[in-house]
Amino acid sequence: MEPVKVKEKKEHPGLEWSACILRIRETRDRAAFAALFRHFAPRVKAFLMRSGADAAMAEECTQEVMAAVWQKAHLFDPSRASAATWIFTIARNRKIDALRKMKRPEPEDLPWGPEEEPDQEDSLALQQETEKLEEAVAALPAKQRELIEKAYFGDLSHREIAEETGLPLGTIKSRIRLALDRLRHAMK
């Protein structure tokens, strides 16, 4: 695999993180892991704490999540997910396991082609899409963004959000729907 061009990495910091995961996979690169850790571990920990873990448990789970990033690096495909998305799914699964004490049924994996290397252009395209979505999420009106965050971080159902915020269930559902419509529109 050819190295990603330096210019592209500067313009798309997400590509730098993808490259770190690929370096872990190819050469068990500890420096790449340290860089990834410094960026993502504090965010994984924050996500777990907002989901209801206390600081000690969140710290322990975060270490497990980051160790899993190393161990599962061979499963990472930068043309299918950004580093942030992929690490989020590992952190989420750890949350279900450790906090909710449940199993996480995963969809059947798609059959992969004959050992195809992920295409550089596909990775770049995926990264650009991810950035577009990131901008769209950042641009959401505060009220909509808050509800989306609660849905992802708060470990709350719509009904529980209604109880916590005092908003009627219908308002919550329609705000989330509006937020998703906006995101969809931005991705066109």
């Binding site: 965010r43 989020f88 989420r92 979505l133 999420v137």
Partner: peptide, 12 residues
């Protein structure tokens, strides 16, 4: 999942 990743990456 990408929305989730974005929220996680941009949280405090």
């Amino acid at each position: 999942d990408t929305v989730g990743g974005t929220l996680m990456e941009n949280c405090d």
